[in-house]
């Protein structure tokens, strides 16, 4: 019994070291946060279209699964994921809704003119309020929304080809999209 007491410190340390080793596992990033909005209905919003013709709202997300992508012309990582978004739109025919986060319409338009426009529709979230309601904490962020308008998954940061092939597309398939 007394001996066991003396073994306790090394035992506790080994447990601790186990946790440390676990948190060093490849692919684990302590900085990414899960979304609190998963399985909740997408928030209500009403944003002016980039095209200038009226507004886009939550109703536009319903009826079939869509992917909502928050982007901005001032955001460098957004350019990294842009080719992937183009591929999603052109090759996979995924309905992409773009939300320009805290961006000037002219800048967003220039970005899309220069690199191509993968979006079916683009809303201008000038003050970032819609982003706040979605729980965005940094652009780019990508949300998968099912046919009933519920958020099913969020990707933080630029999408990777791996995330698209192994997570986003399979999820859309199970949701019965495209």
């Amino acid at each position: 019994m007394r001996r066991l007491l003396y073994l306790a410190p090394v035992g506790l340390f080994l447990v601790l070291a186990g946790y440390f080793a676990f948190s060093l596992r490849p692919g684990y990033d302590p900085h990414t946060l899960p979304s609190a909005m998963i399985d909740k209905e997408a928030p209500v919003f009403e944003l002016a279209r980039l095209a200038g013709n009226g507004t886009i709202g939550r109703e536009a997300l319903k009826g079939h699964p869509v992917v909502v992508n928050f982007f901005a012309s001032w955001c460098v990582p957004c350019r990294v994921e842009h080719p992937l978004l183009m591929r999603l739109a052109q090759r996979e025919h995924i309905p992409l809704i773009g939300i320009a986060y805290k961006d000037k319409p002219a800048d967003s338009a220039r970005l899309l003119a220069q690199f191509g426009d993968p979006y079916r529709d683009v809303g201008m979230d000038r003050d970032g309020r819609t982003g706040l309601d979605f729980g965005v904490y940094g652009v780019p962020e990508t949300y998968v929304i099912d046919a009933t308008g519920h958020i099913r998954k969020r990707f933080v940061g630029p999408l990777s080809a791996e995330a698209v092939d192994h997570e986003l597309l399979p999820l859309l398939r199970t949701l019965g999209g495209s």
């Binding site: 007394r2 001996r3 003396y6 073994l7 410190p9 090394v10 340390f13 080994l14 070291a17 440390f20 080793a21 060093l24």
Partner: peptide, 25 residues
Amino acid sequence: RGTFILLLLLAAIGGSLTLYAVRAP
């Protein structure tokens, strides 16, 4: 770096606490 320091921890802390468990009683 994390892995390397973790190995150092295991050697230094694990080693000394094991020695402690053996000798301290």
